[in-house]
Design a protein around this nucleic acid. Sequence first.
DNA 1: AGGCTAATGACAGCCACTGACAATTGACAA
DNA 2: TTGTCAATTGTCAGTGGCTGTCATTAGCCT
Lengths: 213, 213
Amino acid sequence: MNTVTRSGLRERKKQRTRDALLRVALELFTTQGYEDTTVDEIAEGVDVSQRTFFRYFAGKEDAAFAVQEIAHTQFVAAVRERPLDEAPLEALRNAVLEGWDTIGEAVEQVVPIDLYLRMCRLTEATPALLAAHLRRNDEVAEEVARVIAEREGLDVDTDPRPRVAVAVFAGVIRVMERLWGANEGLGLPELRALTATYLDAVGPVLAEKWRTE
Amino acid sequence: MNTVTRSGLRERKKQRTRDALLRVALELFTTQGYEDTTVDEIAEGVDVSQRTFFRYFAGKEDAAFAVQEIAHTQFVAAVRERPLDEAPLEALRNAVLEGWDTIGEAVEQVVPIDLYLRMCRLTEATPALLAAHLRRNDEVAEEVARVIAEREGLDVDTDPRPRVAVAVFAGVIRVMERLWGANEGLGLPELRALTATYLDAVGPVLAEKWRTE
DNA sequence: AGGCTAATGACAGCCACTGACAATTGACAA
DNA sequence: TTGTCAATTGTCAGTGGCTGTCATTAGCCT
């Protein structure tokens, strides 16, 4: 005769194991490098078998991006909730800037924010991780393109504009990521500012001539 | 001392081995899938040891992109040789369109062009390959950004415009790649036309409002 | 308490990839 | 032509990511 514990002991235990694996994984990745960290080390650090690690994560890579996925989910949701009177690129811009403001608390519920930022840097510096990151970005772009198309009442497979708009936007974000990865010690506020600066650069880029003399 | 004698028996033999490995690899990839093809199978198909395969290619992935790299190299070269009076995006556009016209002969010297096109489709459909492809694109983008910056006499680390321009361009190309991958049976001419169409869509995308009613 | 089921560990095996060393084979000069 | 040198290759052993299988453990429910 137990009060209906919505979250059984089982569920809580699973959650704790997953969190522990994630934290240990990111900690090891960021301190000794992604390639130089074995799954056995991670599992050992949480005192579970290697097999258990693979029951929680599809692979090493999956653990590396578990936190990033929070950011992606949040961004897509933000785009969905933008007022309909905003133009597409305006909505994307506002959504990403809003994201920089709220990402902190969202991430902090799983791992320290500092760990997340270090992981981002590592991604930029590790070829295998960068490749995976770009592919995930590509998937998010497709999802966002569908959202934009729906906002504008367009068919994403007929009208090229939604996908092109998102591609342009994603490209600029990517440039910003690269820049951030290259410069040591830029925090979230600087990131926000950089994003705005780079998005503002899109207009001038399309001008015919850049040279003034 | 003859400097011309690049054609030692040794050199020719090596070249033949490499070509054979490449052809067999792509043939197997495109017929039975990338993941379902083992390096042992490829090596066996050329009658060399697995170890030898890894002496010619850094990995399975490397073989999959050996041909694509020809296209990349050619594109970068084309951008470099564009007349200086063309605006940045104009130069990129012309370079890529010119690339579609000449890619055929360049590729055909190594593998049948049809094999290359099938490989491109496979890349789009195989997550691991798509990730690697996007990373390589990213590298090319950085290289091209430096070329554009030099053309315009700008410092690529100070002025955001070269990288942003290339990112916008690369984004549009990516959208086109995805579209091409989704539609069966589009050949090179259609690809060329699609590229032009999508590049033309960039301007309208930046307009404030898309909805006309 | 005892049966049911989900979570785990232990083990075997596949595949990509690497280092080391010995065998082979083209290149080149005596 | 032959012997020496260096490049190419094969063999073998080993590491690490990842999966299937099966027995064991541990939460849950009556």
